[in-house]
Amino acid sequence: MSKTTPATLALTKAGIAFELFPYDYDPDAPRVGLQAAQALGKASEQVFKTLMTLADGKPACVIVPSDCEVSMKKLAAALGAKSAQMMKPADAERLTGYKVGGVSPFGQRKSVPTVMDETAILFDQVLINGGQRGLLLGVAPDEAVRAAGASLADLTA
């Protein structure tokens, strides 16, 4: 596994400190984020998943705790849209340059509006995908928001 990804390069370029958390990725896990939290011995609410969505048909990135579901209604409101839905996996891979299961909000091919669940600020460090399956990055929440160009909002159902 490479420890250098577009995500780690983007954080390094932005001068943002991060910690690498490699783990054994299980492609058959029903919920990859929960499997990652368990593999690392971390609380599931501290491990955040990155999802690609469409808000009024336009791409957006959403970062939420791995043990939660996104409220599409709250996401749409946070983005000033009327509706939101999940993006098709193939479209997410093409847009971000990452494989599903390894999508990071950092270092994506194209910058899109990004929203992070407000519970991130409850932690000194949150774990977010590092740009490949089996690699999470530990980042201070305020730095993650800055690096992703994200806003904070209540996003969970």
Rank of each mutant, 00 (worst) to 15 (best):
A60F: 01
K13W: 01
T53R: 05
L136G: 05
P6D: 08
L122Y: 04
Q125P: 04
L9S: 08
Y25L: 10
E118F: 00
A120W: 09
N129P: 06
L75M: 02
L34G: 12
L34Q: 15
P22T: 08
G130H: 08
F48W: 06
A17L: 09
L11K: 12
F106I: 10
Y23W: 08
S2H: 11
V126E: 06
M116G: 02
K73V: 07
R133Y: 04
Q85L: 04
G15W: 11
S111R: 15
F18H: 15
A90K: 14
V139S: 10
L54D: 02
K58H: 07
V112L: 08
V32Q: 14
G107N: 07
G33K: 06
P27R: 09
D117P: 03
S44Y: 00
D56Y: 01
A36V: 12
L11V: 09
A84F: 03
S104Q: 09
A17K: 14
A29V: 13
P59M: 12
T12P: 00
M1H: 13
G80V: 03
S66N: 08
Q35Y: 01
A140S: 09
A10L: 07
G149H: 06
V139M: 11
G33L: 07
L136F: 01
Q85I: 01
G138K: 07
Q125A: 11
P59H: 03
S151C: 04
S2T: 15
P113M: 07
L79T: 09
V112G: 05
F106D: 09
T119K: 13
G149F: 05
I16T: 14
T114E: 02
K58W: 00
T50R: 07
L75E: 02
A10W: 12
T114M: 04
G41E: 13
F123E: 13
T96W: 04
R94P: 03
M72D: 07
G101D: 12
K74R: 15
V103G: 05
T114F: 03
D124W: 02
A90E: 15
V100I: 14
A153S: 11
F21P: 01
G97C: 06
